[in-house]
Nucleic acid binder design. Structure first.
Length: 296
DNA sequence: CGTGTTTGACCCGCGC
DNA sequence: GCGCGGGTCAAACACG
């Protein structure tokens, strides 16, 4: 860990497959690389904090992985992904095979071999032993937050927690409470910067959000079942959702940026109050973020 | 009582 | 083949 180069232990600087500059105060770099499973999601997505981007309070970037293998999405064809926190979310589709992720991903391995256990409805049934697990689309994002589990409009049930090798913080595993939904998510804190929460979503929701469980008051009406790209702001801040990003087909453009949780926190990502820099944020958000929520 | 969390054990894939 | 690390299960427990 040379602090000179990066900030994350275990995270090597992957070659940036593409980089985007986001407007404003934030600059995110999307790195897509194939680092092995050095540490975890981090390596997978190869994130790189940029100290110099001081103005940007911190976190940035994220990558999303799309599955590759055949995407046989087990059951749901719906696409959804949520993201959280007021971080920057960058999504991209990559064709490269990230098979390297074999260790991580794996959506649902359980059934394949010991399906006997509980036979989760996870799609795994489709897979067989010899086959490689099919990866579902996944993407991760980092958020600076004090709470690990950010609200994203869906209800999650924690089904496991494990200590990870390169991090003093445990990784938590969540599954969507909807029995028909196979979406999972992993949450862990960056070992390098404990204030950063790394959330990885896997799969697509096939239902819509349930609204904000807490404090939402009337959030239940999010209708973006389609892509439900929900982004969560600060835990205590307002929440908003993105949808319309057809799950698998993420727009090439950087999503909402400039959402600093701690900052005003009333901004909808992408909405960037006056973020003239964001190219089409309006367009993007226009579709996904209900007008009413934009001013939250 | 229903729902969600905790936690130890089990299983699997991968690297050596 | 063995060991390590990650992912999931499921019983027990806690809470509203």
């Amino acid at each position: 860990m040379d602090e000179n180069d990066r900030v994350d232990p275990g995270i090597t600087d992957l070659s940036a497959e593409s980089s985007w500059s986001f407007g404003g105060d934030s600059e995110s770099v999307y790195l897509f690389g194939g680092s092995d499973r050095e540490s975890s999601i981090l390596s997978e997505f190869g994130w790189n904090l940029r100290p110099e981007a001081g103005s940007f309070s911190h976190f940035d970037r994220i990558g999303m992985e799309e599955d590759l293998a055949g995407n046989d999405q087990p059951k749901s064809t719906c696409s959804t992904s949520t993201t959280g926190g007021g971080g920057t979310v960058v999504q991209a589709t990559s064709n490269r095979s990230m098979s390297s992720s074999s260790s991580e991903d794996l959506p649902e391995k359980s059934t394949e071999s010991d399906g006997n256990k509980a036979a989760p409805e996870t799609a795994s049934k489709v897979k067989k032993k010899g086959q490689k697990r099919i990866q579902q689309p996944r993407f991760a994002f980092m958020t600076r937050s004090e709470v690990d589990h950010l609200e994203d409009g869906y209800r999650w049930r924690k089904y496991g927690q494990k200590a990870v090798k390169n991090s003093p913080f445990p990784r938590s595993y969540y599954r969507c409470t909807n029995s028909k939904c196979t979406v999972k998510k992993r949450v862990e804190r960056s070992s390098d910067d404990p204030t950063i929460v790394i959330t990885t979503y896997e799969g697509q929701h096939c239902h819509h959000t349930v609204g904000f469980p807490r404090g939402g008051g009337g959030g239940g009406g999010l209708v973006n079942h389609e892509a439900a790209f929900a982004s969560q702001l600060t835990p205590s801040a307002s929440h908003f959702y993105y949808s319309g990003l057809g799950g698998l087909q993420f727009p090439p453009q950087p999503p909402p940026l400039g959402i600093l949780p701690q900052s005003s926190s009333h901004q909808v990502p992408g909405e960037a109050r006056e973020n003239p820099k964001l190219p089409t944020d309006e367009g993007l958000l226009g579709d996904i973020v209900p007008p009413g929520m934009r001013n939250q």
